[in-house]
Amino acid sequence: MEAIFQIIVSGLTLGAMYALGSVGLALTYGTMRMFNMAHGVFMAIGAYGAFFAADVLGLPILLALLGGIVLGGVVGALLHLLVVRFMLDTKDFEINILVATAGVGILLQDLLLKLFGAYPFRQPVQIEGTVELGGVVIPVQSLAILFVGFTLISAIAWGLTRTSFGLSIRATAMNRDAARLMGVNATATYLQVLIIAGMLAGAAGVMISSISTLSPDMGTNPAIRAFVICVVAGLGSVGGAGITALALGLIEAAVQYYIGARFGLPLMLALVVIVLVRRPAGLFGREEVVRS
């Protein structure tokens, strides 16, 4: 019983982090068919931003968290203004943008390495201590991650479905020309989407680094999980990515508990392949997949 409770708590914590990491990625692909290979580095940038704000500038942790999130958004905006903007509507956009963002990723990762070095700093933006719930000892930080994750994801879900701004993003994703005919400025929408995705990645980075350490390549592993989550959910399905993230978090927690941490990712990938053989567009995807 305690074991199950333990698995559920750590599974939900993992799931909340995965959701933060993958929802922005799914939103970007869904809106503009752009898959951001630099997403993992965005996470690292958010984490270092919060670290810098708390450790060097001495800001309180809530402000530092906010700083990390904002920095992620800024990087997202820069990516749009300096790179993506020039590539929209070009031939083979889907592949070229993968290559370009991979280049941006290695560039930014190198920048982080030059600025902060490879030393695995501890993330100061976290809450120490543990609480006991139902006979299980839970780190307070796990609860904080759950709280931040669910707050931000709910805010995004609310914004996308209940505001005119969110409506315009979804409209652009479904039919760009029709959205423009309604007066939506698609280029501005793309910029906004990349800012949101960057902010979510920044938040994910702060959370992930709070339970491990900081390093320039800290985003690689969570980004690959986010890729996998988006692929399973069906690329571009935002709600699907959130649900899949939670489910995979729970599954991974169980696998870690019973089999060992080493096999979390392999089992996840095996699951992905099985899902995709049955449903080539992913669990929640509806778009056409070129079949032979």
Binding site: S164, L167, S168, R170, A171, M174, N175, D177, A178, A179, L181, M182, G183, V184
Partner: peptide, 18 residues
Amino acid sequence: QLFMDMTVMENLAMGAYA
């Protein structure tokens, strides 16, 4: 050229976006 995954109301609301 409707927004296929939106409801009728959401489509109409998009019409008034501008």
